[in-house]
Design a protein around this nucleic acid. Structure first.
Lengths: 178, 178
DNA sequence: CTTAGCATGTAAATCGTTACATGATTCG
DNA sequence: CGAATCATGTAACGATTTACATGCTAAG
C-alpha cells in the first residue's frame, strides 16, 4: 500500500498536479526511495479518486487532469505517516549475493567484494560532486529531501566500510579452522 | 528473479533438501535479506526443475521430494553471483515517510524521529544479546551469514545515528529561513 | 511541418501475500 | 487416539514491470 501514500503525499505537497507532473516528481525525488512506473501511477490516481482521497478536476488542455487532496485524504495521510509502523523487512539483493557467496571460490568472492568497495567509493565521489552543484529550496520537500539524501550518503559510506571489513574477514576463511 | 537464485543458492549449499527444509532455512537465515512465503517457494521449485537447474527426486515418506542442484544450475548460480549487477533501487518505507514528513506538524515530525531512534536503540540491544547466545558453525552459510549479520548491525546503528542527527536538523526548520 | 515534450491510458506477464485445503507421520 | 509437526499444493488478489497505443501542443 505504500505507493498509494507516496502519491497521496506528493499531491498534498504540490497541491494541484497531474499524473505527468507526479511522474516527473517521482523521477527527480522519490525515485531512490520508492520507484514507480507510469502505469502504476495512473492506476493509483484512479484508485485514490475512487476512494475519495483526492479530487480530479475536469480535463484541461491536452487531456491534462489536475488532482488535489481532499480533507479525507489529508486525514488518511496523517494517519499513515504517524500511526502505521513499517514492519516488512527490506529486500537487499547485494546482501543475498553475499549470503550465497560460499558458492564461488574464495578468490572470486574476495574479488567481488573489492569491486563492490570500488563501486561504492565512486558513488560517494559522485554524491560529493552533486552536493556542490545542487541548490536547495526552502519548501518541505526540499528540506526533508535533504535529510533523505544525507541518509543515502551515510548508507553508502557504511556499505563501503562494511565491504572492506568483510573482505578482510573472508581472507581468514581459507585458513584451517581454529 | 532474485528469489529464484536465493532458492537455487540454498539448494546448492544444503544439497539434498525438500521444499519444507528450504522453508525452515529461509526462516532462520534468509528471512531478513530476502523473505519468501511457502507458496512462492514451492512455485519456484517447480520452475527451477522445469528449467533443468535442479533435479527432483521421487516422492519419499510423506510426499517429501528432495531437490539437488544440477551442473547447469551451478553454472547459472555462478553467473548470477558474479556477473549480474543489482541495479534496482531498494524500497524503504521509513525513508518514504521521512520524505513526506512535511505533511505533519514539526512537533509531530520530531516526536516521530525520536520514537524511531528509541526503536533502533532497542534493536541494537536485542542484537547484542543475541550475539552472545548464538553459536556459529564453520560451514559457508554460517560464515557468510555472520558477515551479513554484522551488516545488519551496522545498518541499524547508522539508521539510529541518522535519526538522531535528522531530528536535530529538523529543529531548525521552525526558525525563519536565513 | 516535423520533432520533442506533454499527457493519458490499457494489456499481459510476473512476482508477492494471504488464505485455504489436504494428507502423512511421530510422539505422548 | 489426538496434537504437533512434516509436507505439499492451489486459488485469489494485489503489486510491479514492460510494452504498446494514442493524441495534443509548442517550438524551431
Amino acid at each position: 500500500m505504500s505507493l498509494r501514500y507516496a502519491v497521496l503525499g506528493l499531491i498534498a505537497e504540490l497541491d494541484g498536479a497531474s499524473g505527468y507532473d507526479l511522474l516527473k516528481m517521482f523521477e527527480i525525488s522519490l525515485a531512490n526511495v520508492w520507484p514507480a512506473t507510469q502505469s502504476q501511477l495512473y492506476g493509483e490516481l484512479g484508485k485514490l479518486a475512487d476512494a475519495g482521497l483526492i479530487d480530479a478536476a475536469d480535463e484541461g488542455p491536452r487531456g491534462r487532469r489536475e488532482y488535489a487532496i481532499t480533507e479525507a485524504g489529508r486525514a488518511e495521510l496523517h494517519r499513515w505517516l504517524l500511526e502505521i509502523k513499517p514492519r516488512k523487512p527490506m529486500r537487499d539483493e547485494t546482501l543475498l549475493r553475499v549470503f550465497l557467496l560460499g558458492n564461488v571460490t574464495s578468490r572470486e568472492a574476495q574479488e567481488y567484494m573489492r569491486a563492490e568497495t570500488d563501486r561504492l567509493d565512486e558513488a560517494l565521489d559522485g554524491l560529493a560532486a552533486l552536493d556542490e552543484t545542487v541548490e536547495w529550496d526552502d519548501d518541505d520537500l526540499s528540506r526533508y529531501g535533504r535529510l533523505v539524501i544525507e541518509y543515502g550518503r551515510r548508507s553508502i559510506a557504511m556499505r563501503r566500510d562494511w565491504f572492506e571489513w568483510a573482505r578482510a574477514e573472508m581472507r581468514s576463511f581459507d585458513e584451517p579452522a581454529g
